[in-house]
């Protein structure tokens, strides 16, 4: 195994740093959110943004598309949206050779797709994204069409407007690498927003990364080392979310179905990206701990008692992190911890 050289890490940080810096100009006061969004992109995962209206979810995605110089489409999900409205469909066209069906690609054929208010579409329409998000291709009338690379879906949803919304199916939620909660802005941030942006519009930024540079960043991320002990920690963390993982008390006991193997894959990939952001040649336990909540919590299916106890996936992950040792074996008690 070969570790990234310091030059490679410096190069990766420089590439990623541009994106982070640009996003921080668009989204003020949310460095963690920006960092996690960039991590999701570097790990080539889809991101689900959840937050109240007006907190900058859509602006974050739009800013990302501008900074990366990627093809961008926005789909406003509504209850009457049909799958073909997303994937595209065949249309009968008249030509010199006669009539024939011609495939008109939908808005999903873009590098960066913003699925705005994704939970307003029916499950049937939401399912149109399943194959695209996992296989990065769509099949229409028996014909499979590849999506452009890279392909990202960044979806937003509003957690409070339940009227006329459809909860995302577990299969689709599982396809989102990270679910990021967009918190409200602080007083200082609000003050900065209203003083620097008179019309409320963020500064118009140009692309900071070319497609080649983005590919280079992806390659560097892939070379970040994942030590076996850290991989073991990720495995034990995901296993602990299952009932047969030994959780009989505490929040983990309220999990009906634990996280899938996608969770472990996503955690490892996102850990690599975060390690690069932090200038490390390897993934450490800290990266795993930092990304465990956004990468695992939304995949947990809680039972009915969890709602009664006001327990959600994040509290389950936090309790597991608190109880699970990073290494399989703790140091002997005869040795001092300090």
């Amino acid at each position: 195994m070969k570790l990234l050289s310091k030059d490679e890490i410096q190069r990766g940080q420089e590439l990623v740093g541009r994106v982070v810096e640009g996003l921080n100009q668009i989204i003020l006061g949310k460095r963690d959110l920006v960092e996690q969004a960039v991590v999701g992109l570097l790990a080539r995962g889809h991101i689900l943004l959840e937050g109240l209206p007006g907190l900058g979810k859509t602006e974050l995605v739009k800013g990302l598309s501008r900074l990366l110089g990627l093809g961008f489409r926005r789909v406003q999900f509504t209850p009457d949206l049909l799958p073909s409205d997303i994937t595209g469909t065949y249309i009968l066209q008249e030509s010199a050779d006669g009539r024939r069906f011609v495939f008109h690609p939908g808005p999903i054929f873009a590098n960066l797709v913003l699925a705005d208010e994704i939970n307003r579409a029916s499950p049937k329409t939401q399912s149109a994204l399943l194959e695209a998000m996992q296989e990065r291709r769509v099949t229409v009338l028996g014909t499979t069409h590849d999506l452009p690379a890279p392909f990202f879906v960044l979806a937003t949803q509003n957690p409070i407007e339940l009227e006329g919304t459809y909860p995302l199916p577990e299969a689709q939620i599982d396809r989102f690498m990270l679910k990021l909660d967009v918190a409200a802005a602080s007083t200082e941030v609000l003050e900065a927003i209203i003083t620097t942006r008179q019309a409320g519009q963020p500064p118009a930024l140009s692309a900071v990364l070319s497609a080649e540079e983005l590919g280079e960043a992806f390659a560097i991320v892939d070379q970040v080392a994942l030590p076996p002990a850290v991989a073991n920690y990720i495995s034990r963390l995901v296993t602990a979310t299952h009932r047969d993982g030994g959780a009989t008390t505490g929040p983990a006991a309220h999990v009906k179905f634990g996280a899938s193997p996608r969770a472990a894959i996503a955690l490892a990939s996102a850990g690599r990206a975060l390690a690069l952001l932090r200038g490390k040649p390897n993934v450490g336990f800290d990266e795993v701990r930092a990304l465990a909540e956004p990468a695992v919590a939304h995949r947990l299916v809680m039972d009915y008692s969890a709602r009664l106890e006001n327990i959600d996936g994040r509290s389950v992950v936090r309790s597991i992190l608190a109880s699970l040792g990073e290494l399989e074996q703790e140091m002997p008690e005869e040795l001092s911890r300090k």
Binding site: M1, K2, L3, S5, K6, A225, P227, P228, A229, V230, R278, K280, P281, N282, V283, G284, F285, D286
Partner: peptide
């Protein structure tokens, strides 16, 4: 941060670096 773990089984040039 896991560096000592990563150095357990890496190429000599990485170790040297």
């Amino acid at each position: 941060g896991g560096l000592l773990l990563a150095l357990q089984d890496v190429a000599p040039e990485s170790q040297a670096e």
